[in-house]
């Protein structure tokens, strides 16, 4: 076992993991942050996207120990301390950007990384950026609409 420490959603955490423990399992099973989903587990679907040092990664394709000493943000970290929705989350609710909701955490985290790099993406840029996030409800139209709205709201 290896002892690792990292900042998750602004909170310092320390725990023991195996070398093979994936970041997504560390977040879900050891920290109880079950907002990050395991979809395909083959790094295709993007349901497990979180940020490590501000960059979107697939948490099912990163070992927890590789995130030792890093800053990790999950979907739980996108909401306010009082539970109020973040701007992107609110846009997804307002524009019906989710149907079953399984892909939503990854969509929101990818959208946040996109908007960090490009504050006003057009529809094509959003669709291209989401190429690693699959929505099996095929609700892409409203997801794109939500991200456009979030970009506008963030000014």
């Amino acid at each position: 076992m290896i002892e690792i420490s990292m900042e998750v959603n602004g909170r310092e955490v320390t725990d023991q993991v195996e070398g093979r423990t994936l970041l997504v399992h560390f977040l879900r099973d050891q920290l109880g942050l079950t907002g990050t989903h395991v979809g395909c587990d083959t790094s295709q679907c993007g349901a497990c996207v979180v940020h490590v040092d501000g960059r979107a990664v697939k948490a099912c394709a990163v070992f927890a120990a590789e995130a030792d000493g890093r800053q990790v943000t999950t979907i739980e970290g996108m909401a306010g301390d009082d539970g109020s929705l973040g701007v992107i989350q609110q846009a997804f609710q307002d524009h019906h950007g989710l149907q079953c909701g399984f892909c939503t955490p990854g969509m929101v985290m990818s959208a946040a990384d996109l908007l960090r790099q490009n504050s006003n993406p057009d529809e094509d840029e959003i669709r291209e950026y989401l190429e690693g996030n699959l929505c099996r409800c095929t609700g892409y139209h409203n997801i794109v609409k939500s991200i456009r709205a979030a970009a506008a709201a963030m000014g």
Binding site: G46, R55, A56, V57, K58, Y129, E131, G132
Partner: peptide, 9 residues
């Protein structure tokens, strides 16, 4: 290459 999250790793 791949998708954005893959390119970050």
């Amino acid at each position: 290459i791949g998708d954005p999250a893959v390119r970050n790793r």
